[in-house]
Design a protein around this nucleic acid. Structure first.
Length: 187
DNA sequence: GCCAGGATGTTA
DNA sequence: AACATCCTGGCG
C-alpha cells in the first residue's frame, strides 16, 4: 500500500480512473474504498465540461494535476472530480462511490441515512457524506492535508457507459468493482 | 417507473 | 431570457 501524490494524476484520465478502483480515499477524518469512477477527457469528449465551458478549460490551465474540481449539478448535488494533467492528455476523474470504512458516524450524521450501504453510493451522496462542497473547488487536497489517496488490495475491475450523460455514450469510461454493494448502479 | 427540485455557466 | 446539466429522494 502506498500513498498517491499529485504525480499519479500526470497520466491518461482513463488510466487514472481505472487505477483508482480499490484505492482508499481519506477526506478529513473519513475513509472509504473507491468502488466507482468515471473518466472525462478534455479533448474530443463531448460529455466533458471542457466541451462547452470555457471556465472548465481555464481551470485546467490554472491548476495542477491532482487538484479538486468540484461543481454543482442540477443545482442540487456537489460532484467531486480530480484534475488529470498528463503527457497522454488532460481531463478529470469523477469519484462516484465509496465503501465507507472510517468515520461512519460523521457520514451518517451528514447523510441521515437508514442504511450504511447508501452513504456514499453515488457522486452526490459521496460529497454529502464527506462534507465536500464548492468551497473545496480548486483545492490541492493531496498536499494541504485535507485528503489523501492510498493504493489498496487488487480487485476485479469492470467498465461500462458513463451515467447520466447524453453525448459520447459509446465510451465505456465508467469503472467499478462489480462485487461492491456500494455502487450507484450495477454494471 | 417518473419527476420535481434547483444553481450555474453559457448561449449549445 | 432561456437552456442544458457527470443526481437523488419521494411517490407511485
Amino acid at each position: 500500500m502506498c500513498l498517491l501524490g499529485p504525480e499519479f494524476f500526470q497520466d491518461d484520465p482513463v488510466d487514472c480512473a481505472r487505477s483508482l478502483i480499490g484505492c482508499r480515499f481519506r477526506w478529513g477524518a473519513c475513509v472509504g474504498r473507491i468502488v466507482e469512477t468515471e473518466a472525462y477527457h478534455a479533448i474530443g469528449d463531448e460529455a466533458c465540461h471542457t466541451w462547452l465551458r470555457p471556465s472548465s478549460r481555464r481551470f485546467i490551465e490554472d491548476h495542477e494535476a491532482g487538484d479538486a474540481y468540484v461543481y454543482l449539478n442540477y443545482g442540487v448535488h456537489w460532484l467531486f472530480n480530480i484534475l488529470v494533467k498528463g503527457r497522454k492528455g488532460n481531463g478529470f476523474v469523477l469519484v462516484r462511490a465509496l465503501e465507507p470504512e472510517v468515520g461512519l458516524d460523521a457520514m451518517r450524521q451528514r447523510r441521515g441515512d437508514f442504511s450504511d450501504r447508501l452513504l456514499a453510493a453515488g457522486p452526490g451522496r459521496l460529497t454529502q457524506a464527506l462534507g465536500i462542497s464548492g468551497e473545496h473547488h480548486g483545492s490541492r487536497f493531496l498536499e494541504n492535508g485535507m485528503g489523501s489517496l492510498e493504493t489498496g488490495e487488487t480487485v476485479r475491475i469492470v467498465s461500462g457507459p458513463r451515467i447520466g450523460i447524453s453525448r459520447a455514450t459509446e465510451l465505456n469510461w465508467r469503472f467499478g468493482d462489480p462485487r461492491s454493494s456500494c455502487l450507484s448502479k450495477r454494471f
